[in-house]
Nucleic acid binder design. Structure first.
Lengths: 196, 196
DNA sequence: CTCCTTGTTATACAAGTGTATAACAAGGAT
DNA sequence: ATCCTTGTTATACACTTGTATAACAAGGAG
């Protein structure tokens, strides 16, 4: 006897598969993320994945794009919570959002680790990575130059601040970090005090 | 006909397997690192791995320890190249070594990504990670307090500097970074200027 | 109602995975 | 020389992997 199934539109299915892929990467990491695991998570048969995507790599690439957008949205939401006439507060909000949920999150890190691994070998995914990071750094730079007392080289400042935030985010998300989210926030603020 | 083989001591074989595992992780990433791939790399049959290690996870854990020690050695070698009466120069050497070979290296990053992935789920590997990072941060703190004009909270300073270095190292090693190793060095120096 | 398109499943397949096990070979002890 | 220990290989096994393919079912068009 065949399993009953509901017929859905292509877009809905693609989105559902991307979401399932993200959940899978988060739960089981890159190792445990297979066609079967993803489709089980999506409540769908393995064949359907290949009906909508060229292969599992294409689905992961799409998931990278989607996850990157979700992160960027969360960061911008944090910024929008601060008044427009407080550019320094907005920059600080953009930065410190990385130390709190939903950005600082063990499962998001697991997803990101999988992306980094693939970015190194798979050039298509490498391109997506470059885009996401270029966008992020561009945003960071924009928020930096919006502040009064803009430093001489905002590009380099954005590079440094991004690296600092990434490093702190990584350790917080890995767990067992020898510092708290509050301390990370303090450090970021101190950094701003000295350079901007 | 059986393949000719040379009989070796247990220690030699273990080290050879660890080295092969490291090369494998570097070349093919976590995905492509299997018992068979490692043993092919070591020029040894698959069964031998289980003769010396409880399983592939135990070998990877040992490889993590070994690679961590190799990195720490490289960092300390950079420090020792600077005169003992120049503590600030030694700290800077410790920091900037991460932006040069052999630390800033795409294949080392691939290895490290595999470790991070496993550290999240495998608690035994997580412990090794914590040890390695605690050691590194401890060294960093030691080089910081050795400088004249030690800041109020050297622990937090070490946290921040470690995060900055990690973030810059990560992007440099991933490739296509929008900044050079020289610029990373400049940024680290600027950081020292402001805080120490 | 019937046909036809197509979303969806079930099944099959070849290749790869970690591990278990027995046969083999090398070198020292007797 | 012979035995015995043990390092090492070859092979087998059960399981998972990504993918291909044919059967099936749902819903609209005629």
């Amino acid at each position: 006897m065949r399993q009953a199934f509901t017929r859905k539109s292509a877009d809905t299915r693609r989105e559902a598969l991307v979401a399932a892929c993200a959940r899978c990467l988060a739960k089981h990491g890159a190792q445990g993320t297979s066609v079967r695991a993803i489709c089980l998570e999506a409540g769908v048969s393995p064949g359907l994945l290949r009906h909508y995507f060229e292969g599992i790599d294409a689905l992961i690439a799409e998931t990278y794009r989607s996850t990157g957008a979700r992160v960027a949205d969360a960061l911008h939401a944090a910024v929008e919570a601060v008044a427009a006439d407080n550019p320094r507060g907005r920059l600080l909000a953009f930065v410190t959002a990385s130390f709190r949920k939903p950005i600082a999150d063990s499962e998001l890190l697991a997803t990101w680790l999988a992306f980094w691994s693939l970015a190194r070998t798979h050039t298509a995914i490498g391109k997506i990575h470059d885009e996401i990071y270029a966008d992020n750094r561009h945003d960071m730079e924009r928020f930096i130059v919006a502040c009064p007392g803009t430093p001489a080289d905002p590009r380099l400042m954005a590079v440094a601040l991004t690296a600092l935030v990434d490093g702190l985010w990584l350790e917080l998300s890995l767990g067992n970090a020898p510092f708290s989210a509050d301390e990370a926030e303090t450090l970021a603020e101190k950094w701003l005090d000295s350079f901007i």
